[in-house]
Amino acid sequence: MIENTSSIDRVAGAILIAGLLFVLTPLAFVVITATQSYEDFLRNNFSLIPGSHFLENFREVWSRTDLPRQTLNSIIVGGIVATGRVALAVTTSYAVVFFTGRGRGFVYALVVASIMLPLELMIITAYQVTANVALPLNVVANLGGWWGALFGGPLDLQWNLLDTYAGISIPLMAQGSCTMILVQFFRTIPPQLARAAIVDGVGPLRFLWDILLPLSKGPLTALGIYMFISAWIQYMWPLVAASSPARTMAVVGLTRLQEDGERIPDFPLQMTGAILVTLPPLILIALFQRRIVRGLTLSEK
């Protein structure tokens, strides 16, 4: 199309440059500060000139703080949550999209409703449930006292998941957005495919495993990466669910670097920690940007 768009293009270009500066400048400050020694920082305060102490700072973070261990925790929890959410979403979406029968709409509504209220809002009672997952069994057993009448005492099972990988991960899976995206994707798969499978005598489970999953590899990987990142950047739930330093996740550990009681916090060390905590998901997102965006906007097209 031949048209003079130079005025709007110039404005758009300026906006993009401003946006890039806004996003990148804080990251640049983090990197520059991480290269300075604490003494330099105290002398010069904020500086725009990179120093040469990054490796020293990094070695100190690596040996003196809990961050390496906590980064491993983030990798473990992120992996469990991503695998778990994608697996749960696959089975539920498959049941919702590919089966006839009553209850499909109801199941889907139950799952989608969970998107509106995030875990942060119900943190107190989610903590209570995680502190004793057997709570619903106790409640049902003691309803009207029938358990006590039969066995001479109320049922009081205790199953505490706090401060375990399961207790940190599973509540983070209780959210239906992954299923919603996957249902949209499964609906775009031509129905002839499954019909042909039935004609060939393929059962529903084999169809899922041998045909549908290989076909959905791309979107499933994108979803998995996105869910890994989403779990990695969680803060409030890991803060309350993990009490020991051995189970704390990296983002929570980073915020605790400053509680040293020094008059001026060791910002270079803290920014080095911020790099360690942020780099893994940042690399993932920069590398897989196209795939992730395509996976997320599936429902929009």
Binding site: V96, T100, V111, G176
Partner: peptide, 29 residues
């Protein structure tokens, strides 16, 4: 889509997610 007919299989397939949601979403509410 609605291709396969089965009474119990879809429930077994959605049960894991429903249990997780019950424990850590509906029960806390």
């Amino acid at each position: 889509q609605e291709i396969f007919r089965s009474r119990w299989l879809p429930w077994w397939l959605s049960a894991p997610q429903l249990i997780v949601l019950f424990l850590f979403f509906y029960l806390p509410i």
